[in-house]
Simulated assay, not measured.
Amino acid sequence: MILPEVKSKIGEDISIVIYLDNCKWNYIVDCGEASMLSVKDCMNTRAIFISHTHIDHFINFDQIMRHQVGCKERIVICGPKNIALQVQAKLRSFTWNLVEEDAILYEIREIISENKIKVYEMKPAQWELTPLEDRDSLYQDERLLVNYTILDHKTDVIAYHFKDNDKINIAISETSYKPGKWINELKNAYINKDRNCEIEIDQVKYSAQSLFYLLQVEKGNTLGVILDHAAHEENHNKIRNLFNDCDTVLIETFYKDEDKEKAILNFHSYASQSGEVMRKSNVKKAVPIHFSRKYIEEEIAQIEIEFYKAFERK
């Protein structure tokens, strides 16, 4: 289960932490200065996903990094074109003479286009960018698959789609078979769609397909995070394509409807447009986030009313 939490209070920058049930690590989306982002959140982060590097989305990278150096882990950073040089510039602005080379390793995945990702790795103390092999997919680990699309905000903004892996269980007490290594072999055969794989149980061989009926598959849920974007048709088409039928989406809703002209001028979205594109995308649960810092609490409540009116309209 994917469990997102916005770590920003009203009037703060945007930062979101994504937790997974029964999982010791988490993921961060954007590095705005957010007072509810904890040291533990930073230390337990496996990957950071940057939408773009406007100051309110990237200024707190230094503080996050501060709590990660020394973990001796590989941490992935994903973001738009030039993110590798920008991360390098941040890291090189400090002195690292007391830090060991293996204190941390950052892997930077720079999204060049919808199907090209350049990859680098960096480590202290010189933080040289070492090129790795390019990728055509963004991120996957044993729990999470992440896809993306590139939106227009007068600069590239990456919108991220997260999917928790399906959970595959077997009710062994309801079968006549004894537990054994065959259970994991059967699960792997199902995941890899290897119907003809031979599974041996108590010295008897079965085809994997003949045992698939024993498995109980719980579909992983999906989460979208859509930050700054112009409310125009090209962006909306991309949103509908990637986030159709998504379980939950957090979406930028920067302006009230009465400030629509400011939204257009600044390549942002506004309440009714964010709500409408969520409705047209058949999103099950949509959450407006990332409001202009000029608004007070009562005005943000009005944005939410306008958003849900458009989202729930039949």
Score class of each variant (00 low, 15 high):
Met1Ser: 14
Pro4Arg: 06
Val6Ala: 06
Lys7Gly: 02
Lys9Ala: 12
Asp13Ile: 04
Ile14Leu: 15
Ile14Pro: 00
Val17Arg: 14
Lys24Ser: 14
Trp25Met: 02
Tyr27Pro: 02
Cys31Asp: 05
Val39His: 07
Asp41Met: 11
Asp41His: 10
Thr45Met: 01
Ile50Trp: 05
His52Phe: 08
His54Gly: 11
His57Cys: 06
Ile64Val: 15
His67Trp: 14
Val69Gln: 10
Lys72Leu: 03
Glu73Asn: 13
Ile75Gly: 03
Val76Glu: 07
Lys81Ser: 10
Val87Lys: 00
Val87His: 02
Ala89His: 13
Leu91Thr: 04
Leu91Cys: 14
Glu107Val: 15
Glu110His: 03
Glu110Gly: 04
Ser113Lys: 11
Lys123Gln: 13
Pro124His: 08
Ala125Lys: 10
Ala125Cys: 10
Gln126Met: 11
Trp127Lys: 03
Leu129His: 05
Pro131His: 11
Leu138Val: 08
Leu144Pro: 02
Leu145Glu: 13
Val146Trp: 05
Lys154Trp: 04
Tyr160Ser: 01
His161Gln: 12
Phe162Tyr: 14
Asp166Leu: 01
Lys167Val: 10
Ile168Pro: 02
Thr175Asn: 02
Pro179His: 07
Gly180Glu: 08
Asn184Trp: 08
Leu186Pro: 12
Asn188Ser: 12
Asn192Ser: 15
Asp194Thr: 09
Ile199Pro: 02
Ile201Thr: 04
Asp202Gly: 04
Val204Gly: 02
Lys205Cys: 09
Tyr206Phe: 15
Phe212Trp: 14
Leu215Asp: 05
Glu218Lys: 08
Asn221Glu: 02
Thr222Asn: 03
Thr222Arg: 03
Ala230Cys: 05
Glu233Pro: 00
Phe243Val: 09
Asp247Asn: 15
Thr248Glu: 11
Thr248Asn: 05
Val249Arg: 00
Thr253Leu: 04
Glu258Met: 09
Phe267Cys: 10
Ser272Leu: 00
Gln273Thr: 03
Ser274Asn: 04
Glu276Trp: 07
Glu276Ser: 12
Val277Ala: 05
Lys280Gln: 14
Val283Lys: 00
Lys284Ser: 11
Lys285Glu: 07
Ser292Phe: 03
Ser292Thr: 08
Lys294Met: 10
Tyr295Lys: 05
Tyr295Ile: 09
Glu298Val: 10
Glu299Pro: 05
Ile300Gly: 08
Ala301Glu: 15
Ala301Val: 09
Glu304Met: 11
Phe307Ala: 03
Lys314Ile: 14
